[in-house]
Structure formats: C-alpha cells, structure tokens
C-alpha cells in the first residue's frame, strides 16, 4: 500500500469520525443530508459483498467493517434518534436521490469488469459513490450557516477521492497490471463534483470567513 492510498483512507476515515463526532457528541445532524448518507450505506453494502468471501488483509476487513457500521449507524441516528432526528433539515434536503440509484444500476449492468453478480454490484457501488455527494452539496447551498464540522466533513470526503486518484496514478506506474478504468473515470467525476466546494472552502479558510456557498 502506498502513501497516497493510506492518506486517502485516513481522510475518508476522518470524514466519518468528524460526522460521528457531530452526531454523537453534539447530537446534531444539521446541514447533513440523509439522502447522501442513505446512498453511502447502499454503496458500502453493495461494494463489500465479498467481505467474508475474499480476504485481502486485516486492515482491509477492519476498514470495511468500520465503513459499513458507521454508514448504517449514521442513517439510524438521523432517522431514529429522538434528539438527533429533530435537527435534521428535512425541508431543504429534497434531492430525489432514488433517481440516482436506477441509472447507476443500469450503467453497472452495461459497463462492468465482468458480468457476474459481485462485479456488477461493485461497478454499481463505484458509480453510485461518484454521485452520492450531490444531495449533500445541494443541501449545503441551501444552508445559511454551514458549521465547521459539516464543512470539514465534506472537505475530508472530497480529499479522500483526490488522494485516491494520486494512488491510482502511482499504482499505474508501479503495478503493470493495475488498470481499473471504471473506478478511475468514476473517481475523476466524483472529484470534479467537489471542485466548486473546494474553491469556496479554501477561500473561506484563507480569508478566515465563514463558509458559504452561492445559491
């Protein structure tokens, strides 16, 4: 495992920690899109089907379990926890996220690395992850006061994919057979969706002003 991949995994983990900190400690999910969180739970469930079949490393297994458990528990908190769910900004979280699922599934059936159940589900999870942030970005645009933890959460989530791209470039040159067009193209699309957010996030940090996205 190279440094980019490890750094990518760590920022991904950090984003989850930041979000859990907000939900678990502050008991608030204000500014967080339940739609995006539901899509992530689906992404991990579809991608980690091989969890108990295909052992890669202890690190890999533990991380998969962490992402599965955290994504489902975040959805549970936002839907069921009696204090947290009251802070959910339902009126602004209106993205029709169900309409992302079917096209991603259709694309996975058409474009996959092998036409098997697990490979189609893997491709589906890659496509869905690329667009899963959309409801969250829409909600951020509609949120007047984006708190620091929410901004950091989205920033780390975006940074994770940037680092993964560097990891793929590194692996492409060091592992001759490492070619995964599906994850590369989807990963680049996913990263581009963050471009706008990154710009405003860095500007707000540089100028030391509160993060706000133009509507």
């Amino acid at each position: 495992m190279n440094a980019f991949r490890l750094a990518g995994d760590m920022t991904h983990l950090l984003s989850v920690v930041v979000l859990l900190l907000k939900i678990h400690t502050i008991k608030s999910c204000a500014g967080i899109s339940l739609k995006t969180q539901e899509l992530y739970a689906l992404v991990f469930a579809a991608r980690y089907l091989d969890l108990f079949i295909h052992f890669i490393s202890l690190y890999n297994t533990v991380m998969k379990l962490v992402f599965l458990a955290s994504s489902f528990s975040i959805v549970w908190y936002m839907r069921r926890h009696k204090i947290v769910r009251r802070t959910y900004d339902k009126d602004h979280d209106t993205f029709r996220h169900h309409f992302l699922v079917l096209p991603c599934l259709a694309l996975a059936l058409l474009i996959n690395e092998r036409f098997t159940f697990r490979e189609v589900m893997w491709a589906f999870s890659i496509y869905l992850e690329a667009v899963a942030i959309l409801p969250q970005l829409v909600l951020l645009q509609r949120t007047r006061n984006i708190d620091n933890l929410t901004g950091q959460y989205v920033f780390f989530l975006g940074a994770y994919r940037v680092l993964y791209i560097l990891n793929w470039i590194y692996r492409y040159f060091t592992e001759p057979h490492f070619v995964h067009w599906i994850s590369w193209v989807a990963g680049i699309v996913q990263t581009l969706l963050y471009a706008d957010f990154f710009y405003y996030y860095i500007m707000s940090w540089k100028n030391n002003v509160k993060l706000e996205l133009p509507a």
């Binding site: 991949r5 995994d9 991904h12 991608r47 091989d50 295909h54 890669i56 890999n60 991380m63 998969k64 992402f67 690395e113 092998r114 490979e119 893997w122 993964y164 990891n167 592992e175 057979h177 490492f178 995964h180 994850s183």
Partner: peptide, 10 residues
C-alpha cells in the same frame, strides 16, 4: 495483485 478481479481498495 489479487486473483481474478479482486478489488483490494476500499
């Protein structure tokens, strides 16, 4: 590299 199409990333 892992056997088949084993995806070793998260």
């Amino acid at each position: 590299e892992t056997s088949g199409l084993g995806h070793d990333e998260l």
